[in-house]
Each structure stands twice: as structure tokens, then as C-alpha cells.
């Protein structure tokens, strides 16, 4: 009996180690820049949905304007680079800080109210930021170029300080490390008091309060942290694409996409947003590429249907059933169906 469980554990660990090895060695045998670019975007989405999840998942509220913080990150580091030659590596912290402050300021009045206020307010705020940027050519000393967006000035060759590389490989490793870090942060928070308080306050605010939790305070901090980390992703996006404009990086569609990937994957779980990105991004890209040529809009009809079906049949996201499947597989190969209930 014990040998079965032992075996199960070994297989489980081996698979996980293999996965990590696999992910970290991809650039050794994948050389096509296009493929790497696709993977980089996949990880970037996983990163952004994971940071969204810090407030949207654990705090149990629904932020629908997170593109604003991606944009704050991208714009801050880029204008600092253009105007003062500040390295984006430093600029990204400035962007993060600004995003955190803005997020906290928005969170303070809205996180005390019913969740709908927060969802609608964040969405309206995101749109407000987009309209502001689209209508502003010059923000103080900085040229932000209104609706046309800005380019990150090209520095010839590989330049670590300028966060610019000729090959895709450095970008791959940077976003992979960033993703690992936010996953670790999420995991860590879920195990300490603030994580318990966030989850409790998200589920039953009154009960949590009567158990000593200042619910709004914890939500506001989660919002700040989430916005901070989201903005770091914004800088990465700017350095990767080297060109961005408000409609894209500050758009409502982008905000919604981040939220829905996390929700379909499984909000409030650690793996959920990553799973969501890994499943949904390829599907939505492929349907967009192949279907919009046939009938524009069809891929979004399908996306809408997927949203509805997941919410009706798996409201906690796809990560639950996938985990079950994985456990079933483990039990199957190690013959532990009887011992380990899943």
C-alpha cells in the first residue's frame, strides 16, 4: 500500500521537475524567433493574469481596468528613457510605484462598497486613462504623442542597460523569471496571514471583520501590490514590442481579456491564471487568425460562448477539472486509486 503512494509521489515530482527543466531549456532547441515570440507573449499574459489574480482572485473583487496599469508601466519607463536616458530597468520601478499609488487611491473609496461599484469604477477609470492619453500630446515635460503612441528609441546591438536585445532568448528568460517570481509571491501570500484575511474578506466580509480583519485595508494593499507588479509587466511589454499606443495597451478589450483569462483558468488559485493563459491564448489567437478571414467576429462569438459555458458548468475555472484529471492519471499509473481520494 505504501509503495503505491511512494511511487505516486515519485512520478508526481519527476513530472514537475521535467516540466521546469523543459520550460527553462526551450531556447536551447527552439531557434525560430517567431515561436519564441509566441511563447514570450504567452508567458507575459500568464504574468499579467497572475498579477491581476492577486486582487481579482484573492480579494474576491473584479477589477476591469488593469490595462491602465500596464499602460502606466509602459509609458513611465519609456518616457523616462526618452527624456532623461533612464534605463528601463530603473524606470520600471518608477512605473510600478506610480501604478501602486494610483491603484491604492482608486481602491480606497471603491473597495469599501459592493463589488459592483469596484468593477464599474475600475472599468471607467481605465477608460478615463485611455481618453486622457489619447488627448494628450505633451504631459508636463514628456512627449507622449496622443493617440499615435510612442516608440522606444532603438539602441544598436544587445544592450542590457537599455533592456534591448537582438535575440528573443533574453526576453524569454526575463519574462520566465518574472512569471516565476509572481507565482512565488502569490503562493507565499496565500500561506501567510494577509492571504487568509484576503480570502476571508472576499468571501464573507462581515464574518471576516468580526474575526478581527480590517477587510478594506487588506484589499487596498492587495490592489496596490497587484498594480505595482502589473506595471512591471507593462515595461516588459514596451521593451519587447518597442512600440505601443493607447488603443492597444490601454484598451478596454485588453483589460477584459486579462480578467477573463484568469476567471476561466480559475481565480483565486495559484495555477489558474497560468492555465487560463496557456489554454485561452492559443485558442483565441488561432480562431482569430483562421476564422476572422472567413467571417469577422466569429471568433469573438465563440469566445463569448466559451465564457458562458465555463461560468455555467465550471464557475471555479478550468484548473479544478484539470487537477482532477492529473490526479486520476497519477493514480492510474501508480495504482493508488483506492488510497488517494481526489
Amino acid at each position: 500500500m505504501n509503495t503505491g503512494i511512494q511511487k505516486r509521489k515519485t512520478i508526481d515530482t519527476t513530472l514537475k521537475v521535467l516540466l521546469v527543466l523543459f520550460v527553462f531549456t526551450v531556447p536551447l532547441w527552439v531557434t525560430s524567433p517567431t515561436t519564441l515570440q509566441i511563447l514570450i507573449f504567452l508567458f507575459l499574459y500568464a504574468y499579467l493574469t497572475t498579477t491581476w489574480n492577486l486582487v481579482g482572485g484573492f480579494a474576491g473583487v473584479l477589477p476591469l481596468g488593469h490595462s491602465a496599469y500596464v499602460g502606466i508601466g509602459a509609458y513611465t519607463s519609456t518616457v523616462l528613457f526618452i527624456s532623461y536616458g533612464v534605463s528601463p530597468w530603473i524606470g520600471m520601478w518608477a512605473g510600478g510605484l506610480i501604478a501602486a499609488i494610483v491603484g491604492i487611491i482608486i481602491g480606497i473609496p471603491t473597495l469599501k462598497l459592493r463589488g459592483a461599484y469596484f468593477a464599474l469604477s475600475t472599468m471607467a477609470f481605465g477608460e478615463g486613462v485611455r481618453v486622457l492619453v489619447e488627448n494628450t500630446m505633451q504631459l508636463g515635460p514628456f512627449n507622449i504623442n496622443g493617440p499615435r503612441g510612442i516608440c522606444v528609441p532603438l539602441i544598436p546591438g544587445n544592450n542590457i542597460a537599455a533592456f534591448q536585445f537582438l535575440s528573443k532568448v533574453p526576453y524569454y528568460y526575463i519574462i520566465l523569471v518574472m512569471l516565476c517570481v509572481v507565482l512565488f509571491i502569490t503562493w507565499y501570500i496565500s500561506r501567510i496571514r494577509p492571504g487568509y484575511y484576503l480570502a476571508a474578506g472576499g468571501e464573507e466580509p462581515e464574518a471576516a471583520q468580526s474575526l478581527g480583519v480590517n477587510v478594506a485595508k487588506y484589499k487596498v494593499w492587495a490592489m496596490g501590490l497587484s498594480c505595482f507588479l502589473t506595471a512591471l509587466g507593462g515595461t516588459f511589454l514596451a521593451q519587447l514590442a518597442l512600440y505601443f499606443y493607447p488603443k492597444q495597451i490601454l484598451g478596454l478589450d485588453f483589460s477584459f481579456e486579462l480578467a477573463f483569462i484568469a476567471l476561466i483558468g480559475g481565480r483565486g488559485t495559484i495555477a489558474g491564471p497560468v492555465v487560463g493563459a496557456l489554454i485561452l491564448r492559443p485558442v483565441s489567437e488561432l480562431t482569430r487568425i483562421y476564422l476572422s478571414a472567413v467571417l469577422p467576429g466569429l471568433h469573438l462569438v465563440i469566445f463569448g460562448l466559451v465564457l458562458i459555458l465555463v461560468m455555467l458548468y465550471q464557475p471555479k475555472g478550468l484548473v479544478g477539472p484539470l487537477e482532477k484529471l492529473y490526479n486520476w492519471f497519477l493514480n492510474k499509473v501508480s495504482g493508488t486509486e483506492k488510497e488517494v481520494r481526489t
Binding site: V61, L62, R114, G115, A116, A119, P205, F256, F260, L263, L295, P296, G297, L298, L300, V301, F303, G304, L305, V306, L307, I308, M311, L312, P315
Partner: peptide, 29 residues
């Protein structure tokens, strides 16, 4: 019904957004 104990089922926002995507894009098609 499924979320009887939840104060504010945010899932509804998502389902209605799904309806939004479907209706807008059907109109587009």
C-alpha cells in the same frame, strides 16, 4: 441558484459579457 450563498455573484458579470460579445459580433457578422 448555484451561488445562493454568495452575496454578489460576479459570475453574472462574466456571463452577460459573454452575451455582449455574442450579440455584438453576431451583428457584425
Amino acid at each position: 441558484e448555484g451561488q445562493r450563498d454568495v452575496r454578489e455573484p460576479t459570475e453574472v458579470i462574466i456571463v452577460t459579457t459573454g452575451v455582449w460579445y455574442i450579440l455584438d459580433n453576431l451583428a457584425l457578422m
